[in-house]
Amino acid sequence: MSDDEIKDLVLGALRRIAPEAGSEIDPDADLREQIELDSMDMLNLMIALHAATGVDIPEADYPKLATLNGCVAYLRERIKAT
């Protein structure tokens, strides 16, 4: 899966969680602050990413997925590892 594909996947999941989230997401800024995600939204994001990629994301790794670029980098590595 290419980085662009992973990015589209994360953005799609984010829009499902916060439909009002605009397309102008700063890839390096904290997602929780940018689109006011709370812990429930973050959990739903993790579940959506898990559903889409099959990667199980342990709670301890959540900080690595705090930004859009973070999500892409994390998923790229984990998908490669499987």
């Binding site: 589209d8 799609g12 439909p19 397309s23 739903n44 559903a51």
Partner: peptide
């Protein structure tokens, strides 16, 4: 796949393409 009942198996990447913006009849 929906949020409330997440699919257990992976879905194709193109399935999660960003949704085009839609504007409701009542403005924000």
């Amino acid at each position: 796949e929906t949020m409330a009942a997440p699919a257990a198996k992976p879905v194709a990447p193109e399935a999660l393409k960003p949704t085009p913006p839609v504007r409701p009849a009542v403005s924000p």
